[in-house]
């Protein structure tokens, strides 16, 4: 029997999870799932690696109109696609979908903030910006190299003005398999009056 993928549902998902855990625990730090995503198929193997690690028929997702990604996720996870305002995981593959995704994503309630959505964003490869972040997982205020898309996503999130503990958590995954995460408590910090600057 030929399998569609070589991704191991026990060991590769464990490996991807530990990297996601590292990324969420140390926001701004980069981890890589390049090795694991090579075992998957389609145009979005890195996103699919995260989906296979986190999604199943107990949770829902929204692919924001990307029918190929939606098909692949349903095929390998048995998770059901739903409207963005009901989805537990939102997959954003185009920059222009960011504001819609944040406007519709569940942010949880003050009583049950864990019912909020996680937004998984297909990140650009070029780390052309420098961004100062602070919050849990970051030792003081630190500067990180990031993509322009990540800066835009944080700005889109901040526009929603969530009342903590409500909010959404973001995971950025590039096509090469680089992962960065920005949980809801992590904030931009200005340096010299600038939040995002061009990386030197």
């Amino acid at each position: 029997m030929n399998k569609l993928y070589q991704f191991d549902e026990v060991f590769d998902t464990q490996s991807v999870f530990r990297k996601l855990l590292k990324a969420m625990s140390y926001p701004g730090e980069q981890v890589s799932v390049t090795e694991e995503k090579e075992k998957l198929f389609g145009n979005y193997p890195a996103l699919l690696a995260a989906a296979m690690t986190l999604l199943d028929n107990e949770v829902t997702f929204a692919a924001m109109g990307n029918s190929e990604l939606s098909h692949d996720i349903r095929l390998v996870t048995l998770s059901q696609e739903t409207e963005p305002d009901k989805a537990d995981y939102l997959f954003v593959t185009k920059a222009e979908q960011l504001s819609d995704a944040f406007a519709s994503a569940k942010c949880g309630t003050l009583t049950d903030p864990h019912t909020s959505a996680t937004i998984i964003i297909r990140d650009n490869e070029a780390l052309c910006k420098a961004l100062c972040l602070s919050g849990p997982g970051i030792d003081g205020v630190r500067e990180y190299a990031c993509s322009e898309l990540l800066c835009e996503a944080i700005a889109a999130r901040d526009n929603q003005v969530y009342e903590y503990p409500q909010g959404v958590d973001m995971i950025f995954i590039s096509d090469s398999g680089r992962i960065m995460a920005v949980p809801r408590l992590v904030k931009r910090r200005e340096t010299n009056g600038i939040c995002c600057s061009i990386r030197r």
Partner: peptide, 27 residues
Amino acid sequence: YNYAFLDEGSKREIRRTTLKAIAIPGY
């Protein structure tokens, strides 16, 4: 038994919960 005793569905739920717990410290 499956590797690490738990079935993969159980692990996935615990993993999702763990990531959420990290995002909302102390909750």
